[in-house]
Each structure stands twice: as structure tokens, then as C-alpha cells.
Simulated assay, not measured.
Amino acid sequence: MMSMQILHRWLAAIVGLQLFIWVATGLAFNLIDSQHLNGNHYRQKMTAPPIDTSSPLAEPSRLLQQFPTQTVSAIALDNVLGKALYRVTSDKGKFGFWATDLSPVKLEPDQLKQLALSSYSGSGQVIAIELANDVADKYAASSALYRVDLQDERNTHIYVDATTAEVVAHENWGSNLKQLLFMLHFMDYLPDNGVSFNHIAIRIVATIVLLLGISGAILVIRKLKHGQYRIERAHSENNTLILLSPDNEPLETITIHHSGMLDALNHHKERIRTSCGGGGQCGMCRVKFIDHPPLATDQDRSKLTDDQLNDGIRLSCQHQAMGGCVSLVNAAQLRHYIKLSSILD
């Protein structure tokens, strides 16, 4: 079963990672020029040739007959590639009909290309036209949404709805980066979150933050019960520390300059090696307290056996410095001490 301390560390790692993402993406939004994130860098106002008036326009009211079960809110006349077109907006979406015969709009690839280029001011060439119905919901478009790819320095993509003859969006590498930054900043990691700031991912992280606080409080209470937060001062009459070998032979007398035992032992030189920097994870900084060993902490109990604890062995990074004698506990520590001393000499 996972201990409370391990759970607390995992929760802290998750919250810390998300905090780092918030800070990094926030800085990115502030430091990156907005023009680099603009998907409409080459977008321009669309122009079309004059409407062909050789054929009369049908009465738009006839379109209502095609929507017997829907509520039509608007019918607008537009000019698309020199042809008149009615766009109908209903409670089910938008639909396009050619204004001369009221036939449904279905643009061909050449028409998609022409329409896309009419909204584009760059010098790139069309290299592909592909169906992009996987992002239709993103742009509130129909399933006949196509992506027109252009070869330019910004890798521009133009999305055209083939049933409404509308250019619904321009994208490029800058706008894709902007979308990624927004996704990370607002934790929009799951599909169908919409624009809500109270979606499931935010709720999960909020719950993790709550659990982090609860687990931290539990750990503090446990430490208080074990007396691990007692203030222990080095005795004024003895502010020196005698370091012994594993065989209790005197190695060095150290003046205490730090409140922590590990820092006191490593003052000016690394007498005791660690790989975790004093976080209680590696267990390498263990020493034996000859007189009055302090109460064992949770880290001591997780890294040391009961026999070692009873023998006065503790992790020096977890305890305050106090005058007296401590000894190294194994040959590896002694070899490191001897090697270090020979280098300094």
C-alpha cells in the first residue's frame, strides 16, 4: 500500500508540473510577438467577380419548404466565385443553395482552390486539398470541411466548407503553436471540453491540490506527534563535533557552523557523500550518533532497519547539528573521507 509520504510526493510532482506549465506558457504569451502566433497573417478580404445575371434568382422564400422541421433564422444572399448563393441559417446549422435553381451547394476541388486563394494574400502554391471533417466541430462547420494546404514560409492551411462556400479559418505554424499554448495553459487536455473553465481536467487538478494539502497536513501532524519539530539547539558549552571512523577512531574535530547535521559535517568540504542533496531519499548520509541519538524521522525509518535505528544510526540530513560524537558507518564512507583528505592535503 502506498505510504502517505509517497502519495504526497506524487501529488506534489503533479501540481508542480502543472505550475511549471502555467508559468512557462504564460511567459511564452508575454514574450512571443503576437504576429508570430497569428493564423490570419496572409488572410485578406475576399473579392469575387460580378454575379452572372443572365439567369434570374429564385425566390428565397421557397427555401423554407426544405426546412419543414427546422427553425430558419436567416437567409442571406452572397456572391461566391461570381455566382449568387443563398446561405440559410437554422437551428441545425448553416446550409448553402445556389440562388438560381436552389440546388444545394457542393464545391468541386477547383472551386475550393479558387475560394481559398481569394482569401489568401501570400505567394504560396496549393499543394494539397484534403477532407478535414475531424475538425468540423471546432469550426462549427459541416462534415464537408476541406483543408487547402499551401507551400509558404508559414505552412498555411485554409479551411473551406464545401456546403456553405465559406472560408471558415486560416491556420499556420504560429496559430498551431498558439493553440498548443492555450491548451497547456488552460489544461484543455481532454476532447469536448468546449470553452468552459470548469471542465473535468481542471476539476481533477483542483482535487489533486486539495489532496496535496490534506496529505501535507497529515504528515505535519504525524511529525509533531513524533516530536520531529522540536527545536534542539547545540549546547552552548559544546559547539564542536567529533567525527569518528566506523571503528570509533577519531578523524576530525569540526566546529559547528550550520543548524543541520549534514551541512555541519560538510562545512568547507564534502565529508559525507549524498546523491539526493539532503532530501532523505538516497540514504547515503547515514551516521551513528554516539551520545543521545535524536528521535528517528519517517525518512530514517524508511531507509534504516530497526537494528540500525536502535544502534543510533540516523540520516544526518534529517537532524539538527549538536555537539558530541558521530561516526561513519561503513567502509565506503571512510574511503571517501580518506580520498578527500589526501586530495586536500
Rank of each mutant, 00 (worst) to 15 (best):
M2L: 14
I6F: 03
R9H: 04
R9I: 05
W10A: 02
W10F: 05
L11T: 07
L11G: 03
V15T: 05
V15I: 06
L19D: 01
F20A: 15
I21E: 00
A24E: 05
I32L: 12
I32Y: 07
Q44N: 08
M46W: 12
T47M: 09
T47L: 11
P49D: 05
P49G: 04
P50D: 11
I51W: 08
I51T: 08
S54Y: 09
S54D: 14
P56M: 05
Q65H: 13
A74T: 01
L77M: 13
K83N: 10
K83Y: 05
R87K: 12
D91Y: 10
G93S: 12
F95Q: 08
A99R: 00
A99N: 06
D101E: 11
L102K: 04
S103N: 11
P104K: 03
K106I: 10
P109M: 04
A116M: 05
S123N: 15
Q125E: 09
V126A: 06
A132R: 09
D134T: 13
A136I: 03
K138D: 10
K138A: 08
A141R: 01
L145T: 01
L150M: 12
L150Y: 09
D152N: 14
R154C: 10
N155A: 14
T164R: 00
T164I: 00
T164Y: 00
E166N: 07
V167M: 05
V167F: 02
H170D: 00
W173T: 11
K178D: 15
Q179W: 10
L181F: 13
F182H: 14
L184Y: 11
H185P: 02
M187A: 05
P191A: 01
P191D: 03
N193A: 13
G194H: 04
V195F: 15
F197A: 15
H199G: 07
A201V: 11
R203F: 09
A206W: 00
T207I: 13
I208S: 00
I208K: 00
L212V: 00
I214W: 07
A217F: 13
L219T: 07
V220N: 03
K223G: 11
G227K: 01
Q228F: 02
A234E: 03
T240Y: 10
L241P: 10
I242V: 14
I242R: 11
L244P: 03
L244C: 04
S245R: 04
T253Y: 07
I254L: 07
H257N: 09
M261N: 06
L262Y: 00
N266S: 09
N266T: 08
R273P: 07
R273N: 12
R273K: 14
T274E: 08
C276P: 04
G280N: 02
C282T: 00
C282S: 01
C282W: 00
C282A: 02
G283I: 01
F289Y: 15
P293W: 12
A296H: 08
D298M: 12
Q299W: 12
D300L: 06
L304C: 06
N310P: 05
S316C: 09
S316E: 08
Q320A: 13
M322L: 14
M322V: 15
G323D: 13
Q333K: 02
L334Y: 13
K339C: 11
S341L: 14
S341N: 15
